Lab assay of single mutants.
Amino acid sequence: SISSRVKSKRIQLGLNQAELAQKVGTTQQSIEQLENGKTKRPRFLPELASALGVSVDWLLN
């Protein structure tokens, strides 16, 4: 799922939720909701993929 991929990649990069949120241009709460499965397809998906160094396709599939 996107939530597990985001969380595992974030941890692999040594980032906390607030640091990832800053790179993406969103809030820590938005990252938390995404990782908890409350958000399925965030509006900041391209920025998120870029910050994590992955493709949008990788996040979604």
Rank of each mutant, 00 (worst) to 15 (best):
K23I: 14
S3M: 08
Q33H: 12
L20Y: 01
E32L: 09
N16D: 11
E32S: 10
V54S: 03
L45R: 02
Q29W: 15
I11K: 10
T27G: 05
V6N: 00
I2Y: 04
E19S: 07
S50N: 13
F44I: 05
R10D: 00
A49I: 03
G37T: 04
V6G: 02
I31G: 00
E35I: 02
N61R: 10
K9N: 02
L20D: 02
N16C: 07
S3Q: 09
T26F: 04
G53N: 09
K40C: 13
L52V: 01
Q22V: 11
Q33V: 07
R10V: 01
P46H: 14
A21K: 02
P42Q: 05
R10A: 01
Q17P: 09
R41H: 13
I11V: 10
Q28S: 10
S3H: 10
K38E: 14
I2M: 13
L52T: 00
N61K: 09
L34A: 03
S55C: 06
L15H: 03
E32M: 12
G53W: 04
F44L: 06
P46N: 14
K7I: 11
K40S: 13
S4F: 11
K38M: 15
R5W: 06
L45W: 05
R5C: 05
N16R: 07
T26M: 08
V6S: 06
V6T: 08
Q29K: 14
A21L: 01
L20P: 01
R41S: 12
Q22A: 15
K9T: 09
L13D: 03
R43F: 14
K40T: 14
V24M: 06
A21Y: 01
V54Q: 03
W58F: 07
A51C: 06
P42N: 06
R10P: 01
I31R: 01
R41M: 14
S50Q: 14
L60D: 06
Q33P: 01
G14L: 05
N36G: 10
D57N: 11
Q12G: 08
K9P: 01
Q29S: 11
L48S: 00
P42G: 05
V24Y: 01
R5F: 06
E19K: 05
D57G: 11
S30W: 15
L59I: 09
L60Y: 09
V6K: 01
E47F: 07
L15P: 00
